[in-house]
Structure formats: structure tokens, C-alpha cells
Amino acid sequence: MTNSVPAPPMDVDIPDEVAAQAFRRLVRHLRHRHDAENIDLMGLAGFCRNCLADWVQEAGGAEDRDAARRLIYGMDFATWKSRYQGEASEEQLARMKESVAKNADHP
């Protein structure tokens, strides 16, 4: 039996000032929590720091992907990756694949 949860409405009624403050706090939190690897975020929630950077770029907040990633990571992605990102296990990759599949019907 599948537990079907209704999708939330597409309109998010959060004032821009509040959304901006919450977004900045999320970015600070992700910069602090290096132990929360992107592969694990993808496996659990279907998004990671790179996704967040892509959304920033798509919203016009950065000229290109590298600039958007610098905004999110607080450094070049290559530097962050070499310092904090480990090799993904087969289990992590499988969880990520399953989780990302759930994103197919979401814009």
C-alpha cells in the first residue's frame, strides 16, 4: 500500500523579506554542515547544494553555474569538493536515484 500525500500548493505565500532571510540562514547552515554530504541530501530530499546553486542561477542571482556555486558554497566548488566530499557508496547512489525519481512530477 502506497502512502499518498497530497502535493502542496504551488503558491508559497511567504513574504520576500522572510524568504530571503530564511534562504540566507539555509545557506549558512549548509556551509557550516560539511558533514551533510550532497549525496546524502540528494538521497533524502532529492536536492543538494548544487541544485540550490542552479536555482539561484535560474532566478538570475548569478551569471553562471560556477558563480552560483560560489554563492552557495562560500568557495569554489572544486575546493569544497576536495576538502569535504567523499566517494559515494553504491547504497548512497541507489538512494539518490530513487529520491531523484520522485522529483519527476515536480517543477
Rank of each mutant, 00 (worst) to 15 (best):
M1I: 15
M1G: 14
M1L: 11
S4R: 11
S4Y: 15
S4T: 12
V5R: 14
A7L: 15
A7C: 08
P8M: 11
P8S: 09
P9K: 14
P9H: 10
D11N: 14
D13K: 13
D13I: 05
I14R: 05
I14C: 08
P15V: 11
E17W: 11
A19F: 15
Q21G: 04
A22P: 02
R24P: 11
L26A: 05
L26I: 15
H29Q: 09
L30E: 00
H32C: 06
R33L: 02
H34W: 11
A36C: 05
E37T: 14
E37S: 06
I39W: 01
D40K: 13
L41Y: 09
L41A: 01
G43A: 00
A45N: 06
A45P: 04
G46L: 01
G46A: 05
G46F: 02
F47V: 04
C48V: 01
R49I: 00
N50D: 08
C51S: 08
C51Q: 06
L52Y: 07
D54P: 07
V56C: 05
E58V: 11
G60P: 10
G61M: 01
A62F: 09
E63I: 13
E63P: 15
D64Y: 08
R65D: 13
R65W: 09
D66P: 13
A67L: 10
R69A: 04
R69F: 07
R70W: 01
L71D: 02
L71V: 04
I72A: 01
Y73T: 00
G74H: 02
G74N: 02
G74T: 02
D76E: 10
F77E: 12
F77A: 07
K81S: 03
K81A: 04
K81L: 06
K81M: 12
S82C: 03
S82I: 03
R83W: 06
R83V: 01
Y84V: 00
Q85E: 10
S89N: 02
E91V: 04
E91C: 02
E91T: 12
Q92M: 09
L93K: 10
R95W: 07
R95Q: 08
M96K: 15
M96G: 05
K97Y: 10
V100L: 14
A101Q: 15
A101C: 06
N103P: 15
N103W: 07
N103A: 13
N103H: 03
A104Q: 11
D105C: 10
D105W: 10
D105I: 14
